[in-house]
């Protein structure tokens, strides 16, 4: 759980970094970029064999994490056949720490939506607008993204997905390190702060993408 979790966290760094390229379109950077930086980066991620192989590893990571998570949740739920009349609730732990299964499931549902929105068109159906940079033909993911995020329902679903991810990470980040055996109090305190910081940065960036596009802060020329 912890190991796959940490692996997925590293993926998040790449994912958020790459997607943040859309913000290069903002007036303070280059309003004429028109998603070129983002499109190039996206193209790179799908163009080489190494990247495609890593993608398979990533999918394996997701599947493993999901299966592990669900089976763990299922097992743990069976350990108390008769429940309490009054529960400890928030007096001993945070609600999101106790709800990793549900949060994870929400993220999974979001993931289904997300993959069918972007990954499938870009890798399988190739049913996408095109752009050309320096003579190289590539998918115009920027336009695709913009189009998707004009639908307020999609924006809200994405924001909910990001929120679920945020709470999942609030617990998951430091818990993963604990599971892997980090027990020094100083390191744990540092990791906990790092976890909160990381979660906030990543999730705010993610959340800003649909918002920025919906509100036309970032938009094609």
């Amino acid at each position: 759980m912890g190991l796959t979790g940490l692996f997925l966290i590293t993926f998040l760094v790449i994912h958020v970094g790459l997607n943040a390229c859309i913000f290069y379109d903002l007036p303070i950077f280059d309003p004429n970029d028109n998603g070129a930086m983002f499109n190039k980066a996206s193209h790179f991620m799908g163009s080489t064999m190494v990247m495609r192989l890593l993608e398979i590893v990533l999918f394996a990571g997701f599947i493993l994490h999901i299966i592990q998570g669900w089976s763990l949740e299922l097992q743990n739920r069976q350990k108390r056949k008769q429940g309490y009349q009054v529960n400890l609730g928030n007096r001993g732990s945070k609600w999101y720490s106790r709800s990793m299964g549900i949060l994870g499931t929400l993220i999974f549902l979001f993931l289904v939506l997300h993959i069918s929105d972007f990954w499938i068109p870009s890798r399988i159906t190739h049913n996408l607008p095109q752009a050309q940079y320096h003579g190289v033909e590539m998918h115009d993911m920027f336009i695709k993204m913009y189009n998707s995020f004009q639908n307020p329902v999609v924006v809200v679903l994405y924001l909910l997905g990001v929120l679920a991810l945020a709470y999942h990470l609030f617990h998951g980040f430091h818990s993963a390190f604990r599971t892997m055996g980090v027990h020094n109090r100083k390191y744990l305190a540092m990791l906990k702060s790092l976890g909160y910081g990381f979660t906030i940065v990543v999730c705010v960036l993610f959340a800003l993408m649909p918002i920025a596009m919906f509100l036309n802060w970032v938009s094609p020329l």
Binding site: L72, K79, G92, S93, S175, F177, R178, T179, V182
Partner: peptide, 28 residues
């Protein structure tokens, strides 16, 4: 018994204030 998911509830109610960091140590 179930497995640990580090919610910290055990530490909060332990009458002898045993720290949950012991569990990390055990995992290591």
């Amino acid at each position: 018994f179930g497995s640990c998911t580090f919610t910290g509830a055990c530490e909060a109610v332990c009458p002898k204030e045993i720290s949950v960091t012991n569990i990390s140590r055990m995992h290591k």
